[in-house]
């Protein structure tokens, strides 16, 4: 089976400081991979490099494109990469404000990606937006409200709807539940799990919260100081951690 995403020897430094280095992995269709580590471990840097938000120093990030098969996204032209970013890829920011247009209605937010790829039927766009709001448990009568009137949890769900409306094949998520209340987190996680299963999404989720990966991720990568220190199936890594750092991570969660 061809991987959907194939990452080879990725390295990113900031002056003398290592952002991340020597990162290699394959992600297969329908698979969800978690990247865990404490803040400063390089997991967000890695995610931003993979998603093309940051230039990397070296490495290859191949993606199985619909038209041309495996392509190194790092070598793609800017228009090609941007096209990918608004069609097959999606990015869910930790802070919903970074991923939403706060002065545009919920419907407009969800509809933007549809319009960006050429949908020109207002009624269809609106119907799809309402359908997606429903799928993320936002009532239809909020379709014309602006996200600034929404609660934090609603904003995050709206961001997810906005990203998934074009049926992307790969979703990058940066601490999707960060900054939310615990009860709100649980609901969001539940929703995400449902969507991932139902849409057979492939996803890379960066989080410091092991509960999130336990629930969502098939596989795990543990990062420390820019290096991948351990990787494997989620249950295996969490239940039988090999690296001392992973052991520390797991035990601190258990204590918490």
């Amino acid at each position: 089976m061809t991987p959907l995403l194939s990452v080879r020897d990725v390295r990113k430094t900031y002056g003398n400081r290592i952002g991340c280095t020597n990162v290699n992995f394959d992600l297969y269709p329908g698979e969800v991979m978690g990247i865990v580590g404490e803040s400063g471990s390089g997991k967000s840097t890695l995610l931003n490099c993979l998603a093309g938000h940051q230039a990397l120093d070296q490495g290859e990030v191949h993606f199985d494109t619909r038209v041309d098969g495996m392509r190194d996204t790092i070598k793609m032209s800017e228009p090609e990469r941007r096209m990918l970013l608004r069609t097959d890829w999606a990015f869910v920011h930790q802070n919903a404000r970074d991923g939403l247009r706060m002065s545009v209605s919920a419907g407009g937010n969800v509809g933007e990606r549809l319009m960006a790829v050429g949908d020109r039927h207002y009624g269809n766009i609106r119907d799809k937006a309402i359908d997606w709001l429903d799928r993320v448990e936002i009532a239809e009568d909020r379709v014309d409200d602006r996200p600034s009137d929404f609660s934090g949890g609603m904003q995050q769900r709206l961001q997810i709807a906005r990203n998934l409306v074009t049926g992307p094949r790969l979703v990058f998520m940066d601490e999707p539940t960060g900054g939310l209340d615990v009860s709100v987190q649980a609901r969001l996680l539940d929703l995400l799990r449902g969507l991932v299963r139902e849409m057979e999404l492939s996803a890379i989720i960066v989080t410091h919260d092991l509960a999130v990966v336990r629930l969502l991720a098939d596989r795990l990568m543990v990062m420390k100081s820019g290096h991948v220190v351990e990787s494997g199936l989620t249950d295996q890594v969490l239940d039988d951690p090999q690296h001392p750092y992973t052991q520390l991570l797991v035990s601190s969660v258990l204590q918490a």
Binding site: S105, E112, A116, R126, D144
Partner: peptide, 18 residues
């Protein structure tokens, strides 16, 4: 340059919605 005109239609969408 990148023909990214989605935002233009978002504005029109917002007009109709309102």
């Amino acid at each position: 340059a990148l023909e990214e005109y989605g935002l233009m239609h978002v504005k029109l969408y917002e007009d109709i919605a309102r």
